[in-house]
Design a binder for these strands. Sequence first.
DNA 1: CTTTACCTTCCCCTCGGGGGAAGCCTTACA
DNA 2: TGTAAGGCTTCCCCCGAGGGGAAGGTAAAG
Lengths: 129, 129
Amino acid sequence: MQIGEAARRAGLTVKTVRYYANIGMVTPRQDAVTGYRDYGEGDVAKLQFVGKARKFDFSVEECRELLGLYEDRNRPSREVKAMTLKKIDEIDARLAELQSLKDELTGLASACDGDHRPDCPILNALSGK
Amino acid sequence: MQIGEAARRAGLTVKTVRYYANIGMVTPRQDAVTGYRDYGEGDVAKLQFVGKARKFDFSVEECRELLGLYEDRNRPSREVKAMTLKKIDEIDARLAELQSLKDELTGLASACDGDHRPDCPILNALSGK
DNA sequence: CTTTACCTTCCCCTCGGGGGAAGCCTTACA
DNA sequence: TGTAAGGCTTCCCCCGAGGGGAAGGTAAAG
């Protein structure tokens, strides 16, 4: 099938699918005459796989790695689990960071009247006064 | 003072300070003979201000806006508070997103044995089987 | 025969700078 | 006096993960 159909079935944009072909992640057959990319069922499955992994916040390089594991029928599940736990740790770190950021901003906002007067604890905090 | 000293005092890199000069955010005087940028105390204060605002996850454009409000002695605190509340909302949205992502990944990881065997619920989930 | 809807490659854009080259300025030291 | 070191300058390319659009080829339908 052509790239548009493959993209639609994988829930990705044509640009994204073409990008994955360019970086060698999902490489379809290419018609020698027209130059059109020709996607098979297996390619679409890979595209869907990568699309889901991306939604799970795996980077493109991590997706490439996961795809390698996915295609290796004998790989131990250990490696996949390790990558997933690492990703969870990263998310945890980011959650903590955002939470403390939110706490600080919330504290500043509650101290600011937010009216017509120019005095503003938020700006004072930013300017270090 | 020269850019290196200004950067050190603001806790930023020279590259970053030069970038802020290039985009017109903090524009020091520039020596006509040597071409060296010449930072005053007010410039350093602005750099520190922007540095802190960046740590609070404000974008460079938002920092530019905050800096404008900071320099306007008569601006109402309303605007600053509104920006802060908006930023808090954005952080909340990102927190919720990351939390649900973490929940999904945690569920998958706990279902995966993570041993030498090839069966892996994580990959199965990604491949939609 | 022409329109329409695909597809291709190619290049520039995002955001917030980082890395490094080539070249100028000033100071310190042999 | 030379030179080495450490500042500074501009200029250009790089990152991730594609998006936008131009210019041009192709296929199917009217």
